[in-house]
Nucleic acid binder design. Structure first.
Lengths: 250, 250
DNA sequence: TTATATCTTTTATAAGACAAAAGACGGAAC
DNA sequence: GTTCCGTCTTTTGTCTTATAAAAGATATAA
């Protein structure tokens, strides 16, 4: 390890990086390698300090950054835990849809189709695959309360989700990302969304119970796992009569 | 000041707050009071440490949080500066609109109307005013490159923007928030946006050169200044044929 | 005049000492 | 036997001190 600047003598380290950032990379690597499972506690700050031969404060600063990135969750007196999609309070939500008025309703995912195909140029580009690589295409409806609000088309790299099928989707009680995490070990860390207004047509109009040509919110999402690797591309049509997309600019 | 826990003896301090958070509040107060102007450097960490009689590290932690909230900007070796809308790289952008392809185009604001009125129930609620309080209503077009992309209706509390007029808007070269900051001392810190897809109608359709009934992205925004005080309500119609709303979920 | 050290001021990093929070455990009270 | 309450241990959180790196300004030498 590059233990500069304090102990450096001859090697000015061409790619200098402060100690806490090196520690962060090491912890990240362990996380990525699955040394600690989602929801588990990682070793205490002082244990890690001994293991890496640095002070507790330095480990702390590394963990600080990872907590800010929602990779870890701290709880005073208890420990530091690997963030998980199975715990809604611990992992941030990706769904930004809220009702125009009233309380947040329980959401329910209704899988419609799930099949295998080969990546076309667009999907390949979005997922960083070769054109023709095996992919999974899934369609589903998202209901909030009794109302069908979102129609999603979801594209996944086939290699990472070997046995994913309509049956498995139907049997799962969990959220999609929770399933991906627990069954396939694929953890969604961050995502980028691109929003447009489009006219409803075909299946989407029908499933969402809106007129052909009426306005829908189109949300395209690329979700990334560790190392900024894209592992999901999704196109969602949102009916925004009773709900809206909420965003905080901070 | 509540200097616990280190120096506390008798007073367990019913509303305990760590030292660095108290320091943060003090710095915030100075900022709010205008002790340092946007773009100016604030005193160095060691100066502030002397002033508040704490260590540099404690001041540092206070400033860390404020930098994370985009209130201050640090530059190693130079100092810490008050964020300003006049410096695009220093202050975060509120405009999330990017071209579907190609480079980010220069944007130009075209003011259409600016008049005074009394707050109706909705505006009053959004801006935290009494119904009937004086407000300013402004309409404008936002062009990206040559194309008219956004039609905005903007509502402001009349009290804070005394002499704002169409003339002033027309003469200003700056962005709207830069003008608000430099001329009226009102700094937008954060904002909440609510997005929907709607059908184009009337003036909006005409100005944005789209068919009546074609889909538009409706973006409603409440912008806040210090102390979470709402000071702008805005309703924007976005034409999303060549542009989209970009959002990062982190 | 131009390049190059050197000094000063600033933020950034690292380590160490100690406090607060949360539970676990064990003994006293009932 | 069960409940309550202190005490001990383990964990994250706070605060200070010392020192390094970054950026300019200033002086110096070619």
């Amino acid at each position: 390890m590059n233990r500069s600047p304090h102990s450096r003598a001859a090697a000015p380290s061409p790619t200098f990086s402060p100690l806490y950032r090196q520690i962060k990379d090491l912890i990240l690597k362990s996380l990525e390698a699955g040394e600690w499972q989602p929801g588990d506690a990682i070793p205490s700050e002082s244990e890690l300090a001994v293991r890496f031969n640095v002070s507790q404060g330095t480990v702390r600063k590394a963990i600080d950054e990872m907590a800010a990135e929602n990779l870890l969750v701290r709880r005073q007196g208890k420990g530091t835990f690997v963030a998980t999609h199975s715990d809604p309070r611990s992992f941030f939500r990706f769904l930004r849809l809220v009702p125009n008025e009233g309380e947040l309703l329980p959401s329910k995912s209704v899988p419609l189709e799930c099949g295998r195909a080969r990546a076309g140029a667009d999907v390949a580009r979005m997922l960083g695959l070769e054109p023709g690589a095996p992919i999974i295409i899934m369609r589903r409806l998202l209901k909030l309360g009794e109302e069908a609000v979102v129609f999603d088309e979801i594209y996944l790299p086939g290699e990472l989700f070997q046995d994913l099928s309509l049956d498995i989707l139907r049997q799962s009680e969990k959220s999609l990302y929770d399933l991906f995490e627990s069954r396939y070990g694929v953890r969604m860390i961050r995502a980028e969304e691109r929003l447009r207004a489009v006219a409803a047509e075909g299946v989407a109009a029908e499933l969402l119970h809106v007129e052909e040509g009426s306005p829908l919110l189109l949300v395209e999402r690329v979700a990334f796992t560790y190392g900024n690797k894209p592992v999901e591309w999704r196109r969602g049509f949102y009916a925004t009569r009773d709900f809206h997309y909420f965003n905080e600019l901070a």
